[in-house]
């Protein structure tokens, strides 16, 4: 009971109430996050409906390979995060540490690949204002209506704001994970006090969910050139 007493904050009646409050608090925060990302998704949807061809043309130029690999990396980090919660609750300290470190590693891989991708975008002149060639967009083959460079810029701005905001959330999440590692090494994450892992896990999974939607909205909205080894049925819509 003495350990329980130290874990229980002064203003709660019991551990169950404290856990419930922590999880619910994080869910309310995530509701806020849904609306902050929802606002920019709404803006994106409106311009996507307004300028479909420009958005598809710009999307087709994004690096779908890095985007897809990053999706898998992030999903894997969600798996290791979920396993960390499991490890904490069954009291397996070594597994917890391994899973947390793996999550951090996968998160760092994601951010590293993102930096590489941004750099390639820069080299391909896909950065509005900074590195952008309006002329290359006015004559794209296979597009019936002319694509307007400033509308392409609009799509690219959304790409940078959305992925940038997502990356910022990733960085915050990694900071929280590092704190968890420190707590785990001090032996403070136990089957009694597992809520820090659970709550930070909720946040991490949410950031993953945002990316799940960013992938189709940004990368997969245009038709991409299939790699030569992949069989593609001749569907034309």
């Amino acid at each position: 009971m003495s350990t329980n007493h130290a874990v229980l904050a002064h203003h709660f009646e019991n551990l169950e109430q404290q856990r419930e409050t922590a999880a619910f608090g994080m869910w309310i925060f995530l509701a806020t996050e849904v609306l902050i990302f929802g606002a920019i998704f709404t803006c994106y949807a409106i311009y996507r409906l307004r300028y479909p061809l420009d958005f598809e043309a710009a999307s087709a130029r994004l690096n779908v390979l890095i985007g897809s690999i990053n999706t898998i990396v992030l999903l894997s980090s969600s798996l290791t995060m979920a396993l960390s919660v499991h490890a904490t609750r069954v009291g397996r300290q070594q597994m917890l540490l391994t899973c947390l470190l793996l999550t951090i590693l996968l998160g760092a891989t994601f951010l590293g690949l993102k930096v590489v991708e941004y750099y390639q975008d820069y080299k391909e002149k896909l950065v509005p204002v900074l590195a952008f060639d309006p002329d290359e967009w006015t004559q794209i083959e296979g597009v019936e209506a002319p694509v307007q460079p400033q509308r392409v810029q609009l799509m690219l701005v959304f790409y940078y704001i959305m992925t940038g905001l997502h990356a910022a959330h990733m960085i915050v999440g990694m900071g929280l994970l590092i704190w968890l590692v420190i707590e785990a090494r001090r032996g403070l994450l136990t089957p009694v006090r597992y809520m820090p892992v659970e709550v930070i896990g909720l946040y991490w999974h949410f950031v993953d969910i945002v990316w799940i939607f960013l992938l189709p909205l940004l990368y997969l909205t245009g038709t991409h050139q299939a790699p030569p080894w992949l069989p593609i049925p001749p569907i034309h819509f």
Binding site: E56, V64, T223, L230, I232, P233, I235, F237
Partner: peptide, 12 residues
């Protein structure tokens, strides 16, 4: 994989 198909506006 679906993004390689010619779906036009239905990709999204």
């Amino acid at each position: 994989y679906v993004s390689f198909l010619e779906l036009g506006p239905w990709h999204t």
